[in-house]
């Protein structure tokens, strides 16, 4: 793959986008997971599916849409979905999580309708569902770069507010942190990252890249900063190994990336379990 990387532009696009996504997806994922919103990413990616299917369908029937990159409509619908989830969460104060299945089903519903109307999309759609090494264009790469800049700036500037809100919402409110504003910006950014990631990992597996590295990192880290670093390292490792094997074995990269992260998670779980079973030095001293 190394030599091919220098030869083929599409590989460079896929590889660079992958590297960037490996950082930003788990970075946002950490905040999603600690706020117990892991399923939101899932719901939003299915809304993105509706947008993409809609765009693909329209491109068959309306000339204007044939030139439009379906990623944009997918991203736009994910952003719309994220705002809707916020609205619904307000309406069901005591059952906030109810917003998630409602939005998820809406996304799949529309997705199914557009796919049927277009009588299937064949390989195009499979690429969007499970990711693709060859489908990433230069333009897609630029979109990923811009979104990454937004994400990193947001976390850089709102890190302490995001931490305070995630750890203790009530305390954050008492201390005068504008939780509503930050939450809405956060949700929009999550939707954008889902849009940016789906070319590589695919709609069905975007949320895994946001949550599985974080799940492994939380086993290892004591501090929030530590969890953040581990999440990114594990995310990046999964993307690298996943992309290489996808290219060599000619498999959809979404599958290889996510399965790699699952293997890392299992290794981490096994390791922490082994470590937990051995009596620590302190315990030994106490029993001595």
């Amino acid at each position: 793959m190394i030599s091919a990387l220098f030869t083929y532009e599409f590989l460079q696009n896929a590889f660079l986008s992958g590297l960037i996504i490996g950082v930003i997806a788990p970075l946002l994922g950490l905040f999603i997971v600690v706020r117990r919103l892991a399923l939101i990413a899932d719901a939003l990616s299915h809304v993105a599916l509706a947008g993409i299917a809609g765009s693909l369908f329209l491109s068959q029937s309306v000339l204007m849409f044939s030139a439009l990159n379906p990623v944009y409509l997918g991203m736009a619908s994910a952003v719309g979905g994220s705002l809707l989830i916020e609205k619904l969460r307000g309406a069901y104060k005591h059952f906030e999580e109810l917003a998630i299945p409602i939005i998820l089903s809406t996304g799949i519903g529309f997705g199914a309708i557009f796919i049927s109307l277009a009588k299937g999309f064949g390989s195009d759609l499979v690429g969007y569902l499970f990711g693709s090494v060859s489908a990433v264009s230069r333009q897609d790469l630029w979109v990923v770069v811009i979104i990454a800049v937004v994400v990193v700036a947001f976390i850089r500037f709102f890190y302490k507010e995001m931490f305070a809100l995630s750890f203790d919402k009530e305390y954050a409110k008492v201390s005068g942190i504008n939780g509503k504003f930050i939450q809405i910006v956060f949700m929009i950014i999550v939707a954008l990252v889902i849009g940016a990631s789906m070319r590589i990992v695919g709609i069905l597996l975007v949320s895994s890249l946001m949550t599985i590295p974080v799940a492994a990192a939380m086993q290892l880290a004591k501090s929030f900063k530590g969890a953040l670093v581990y999440s990114i390292v594990i995310g990046e490792l999964s993307v690298l190994i996943g992309l290489f094997s996808a290219f060599h074995l000619d498999i959809a990269p979404g599958g290889t990336i996510v399965i790699t992260s699952i293997i890392i998670l299992l290794l981490v779980l096994g390791w922490t379990k082994m470590k937990g079973k051995q009596p620590s030095k302190k315990a030994k001293e106490e029993f001595a």
Binding site: V34, F163, F167, D168, M218, A221, S223, F224, A227
Partner: peptide
């Protein structure tokens, strides 16, 4: 708070 929260 959620006791699994990764924070020192």
């Amino acid at each position: 708070f959620n006791s699994g929260f990764p924070a020192t």
